[in-house]
Computed example of a mutant assay.
Amino acid sequence: MLKIEKLTKKFGGLAAVNDVSTVIEEGKINAIIGPNGAGKTTFFNLISSMHKPTSGTITFNGQDVTSLRPDQVAKLGIARTFQSTSLFDKATVLDNLIVGHRLRTHSGLWDVLRGSSRLREEERVCREKARDALDFVGLSPIAHRLAGDISQEERKRVAFALALATDPKLLLLDEPAGGVNPEETEGLAQLIRKFVQHGMTVALIEHKMAMIMSLADKILVLSYGEKIAEGTPDAIRRNPAVIDAYLGSEHAEV
């Protein structure tokens, strides 16, 4: 689905991502792990076109997307979440989600001024998509609560729903279980599996190794911006370079 070839991003003299090649496999859960500062979020920023690479190429479903704008990449079907979930706290959860499907609408200023039938129809579709996304992530009961009044775990689910409302093919999830307790983490892991069961592909960055080892089909390991290993969870947990750089010996038998 997504092919990364010799991807490099330099900030001054620092290579945050250095000559990384990999494939995000369709219909699977692909994990990216590594110590803090390994280049994981920069890697996601390159895929979603928030940063442009210094060199290398990114191909999505056969199309070179390396030089596209973020909105163009999103329209092709790549959606992402962030480590910190930023919402419009004074708006309802549902209203926060309506903006997600705006990516797929075509109404302009003239439609707004005229109150056109196209605008009304697109408003209806956006609300429908928002409600469907809320139902998918299990948050329909809090649709009309203010976003500023919901829990951290609920904010994570709203972020998932916002990405879902864009009609994605590939979901990039940056630390989706950050800041939530073990029971909530398991619930989010089940939701990530549900995405794949419904035809989406997932790539996620996460530090919770028990979650990753039970969830991922494939793991890419970065250290100081470079790929040091790639493979199944079983292969990664036994890889001496990964144990030395990140996991520690206690994970070798996880």
Rank of each mutant, 00 (worst) to 15 (best):
I212E: 00
N96E: 00
N36Y: 03
D89T: 14
N30L: 10
R114E: 11
R237H: 13
A210S: 13
L109E: 13
E122V: 02
A165I: 07
R120C: 02
M209F: 05
R114L: 13
L97I: 11
R80Y: 00
H207K: 04
I78D: 07
I47L: 07
T105F: 14
L222Q: 03
E128A: 13
F11I: 06
L204I: 02
A143G: 12
A38G: 07
H106V: 11
R238F: 03
T57Y: 09
I236P: 01
A161W: 03
L119R: 00
K227L: 03
E250N: 04
A74D: 07
F136D: 13
G199M: 06
G56I: 04
P176D: 14
T81G: 01
Q190V: 05
G56C: 08
A245C: 04
L2S: 08
K208A: 08
R102P: 04
L7Y: 13
D95A: 15
G179M: 13
S151Y: 10
I29A: 04
R145D: 11
T166P: 00
K208V: 08
L94S: 08
L247M: 00
V20Y: 10
V17S: 13
D132H: 15
I47A: 04
I58F: 12
H144F: 13
H207M: 01
A130D: 03
G178C: 10
I142A: 03
T185Q: 05
L173P: 01
A161M: 09
N30F: 15
K75V: 14
L247H: 01
E153D: 12
K208D: 13
M1G: 11
S249N: 07
D89C: 13
T105M: 15
F195N: 03
K169H: 15
Q63T: 15
K10E: 10
E128V: 11
D132A: 14
L119A: 01
K156A: 03
L76Q: 10
K129T: 14
L119N: 00
Q83P: 02
E121Q: 05
L173M: 04
G13P: 02
L113Q: 14
V65A: 05
I78V: 13
I98Y: 11
V180N: 07
R80F: 01
I228C: 14
F195I: 05
E25K: 15
N96F: 00
K208T: 07
L191A: 05
E230C: 04
A177Q: 08
R120L: 13
L215F: 08
A245T: 09
S107A: 15
L109T: 15
H198Y: 14
R157P: 02
D217K: 01
W110G: 12
E183P: 03
A252G: 12
A245L: 05
V254N: 04
L215M: 09
N18P: 06
R118M: 10
G199N: 06
L204Q: 03
K227R: 15
K75Y: 08
R102A: 15
L173C: 02
A38P: 04
V99R: 04
F195Y: 12
L204C: 06
G34Y: 10
A74Y: 10
N61H: 11
R237C: 06
A91F: 13
K6G: 07
S84P: 00
A177H: 05
D174N: 02
V73W: 09
L113V: 14
D19K: 08
R193P: 00
A203G: 02
